[in-house]
Design a protein around this nucleic acid. Structure first.
Lengths: 147, 147
DNA sequence: GTTACCTGTAACCATAATAGTTACATTAAA
DNA sequence: TTTAATGTAACTATTATGGTTACAGGTAAC
């Protein structure tokens, strides 16, 4: 199975908040860029707000980044939108048979390995910031405009 | 979401085939160790067979490892049981708005990053073999028997 | 204060994957 | 021929996703 697209949508939103920082970023505007329903955006925005990545207020149109681009990593977004719980990227089968040497040890053997793999993934995400993504988008735009 | 427990069950099966290599490993026997239904085991065994990790034959009771423990990595198992497709660990939202600079570039910006994270995870899995898991289980057994 | 507009949230739906279950055809060995 | 195992298909319950509608609550402009 795949990790929810909430993650990629979260990145999209944050990048757009930067690139449109002088505009009014309503959920409807953001939804039109992502191409989804405004309620979906508001749900994800709620998560980003809880993680203190964005500033939004009931009744007031528009959202802003709550901190500098350069210190928001993709791992922050990944955690914010709750796509994978702590140490639960891999699921381990429950209740193996304790009367079997494999059954009674497999979980303890496997869990640290799975944890390491998950950490390797998360470390990769922690090394990329929203600033990197924004710069990449700007660069791609320039490359295309001179074609 | 989590990666299917087919992966951990696959590892369990392979380790057990080694530790019980002198016995007859029917799907019923394996199922009793994993604590699930024999048909579930047979389905997973079918995938392991297709990946040439185990040898089984219709009508003949028992399964054997098809290659040496030391060269079967967890990545081999992970691919065999088809828990995550190539480059699809992360899902990316479809059809972002091409009239927005973020919308028209976000996928191209994000996909290589996601791919790197997935590769980091898979590299970790490629460094652990079934032999490592078996040794760990044996060691845990010994540690417990002397308690 | 009332209107207009936005956010916050709940309720609901369709879809898809998981894990399990039953059943049975197919195959091989005793 | 009988027995027993594998290989599969069909079906179920459960769960997460992503979307949709609806509306309560907050804020600002008039």
């Amino acid at each position: 199975m795949s990790i929810s697209s909430r993650f990629s949508v979260g990145i999209h939103i944050l990048a757009l908040l930067e690139l449109n920082k002088d505009g009014v970023n309503t959920s409807e505007f953001l939804a039109s860029s992502v191409n989804t329903n405004p309620a979906v955006i508001r749900k994800i925005m709620g998560m980003l707000k809880k993680a203190e990545l964005v500033e939004i207020h009931a009744g007031i149109a528009g959202a802003k980044l709550a901190k500098s681009l350069s210190i928001i990593t993709l791992l922050d977004v990944y955690r914010a939108v709750d796509v994978v719980s702590e140490n639960e990227l891999f699921s381990v089968h429950e209740n193996p048979n304790p009367d079997c040497s494999v059954g009674r040890n497999i979980q303890e053997s496997i869990i640290p390995i799975f944890s390491n793999a998950q950490i390797a993934l998360e470390n990769t995400l922690s090394k990329v910031t929203i600033e990197d993504v924004v710069k990449d988008i700007v660069q791609k735009e320039q490359a295309n405009s001179t074609k």
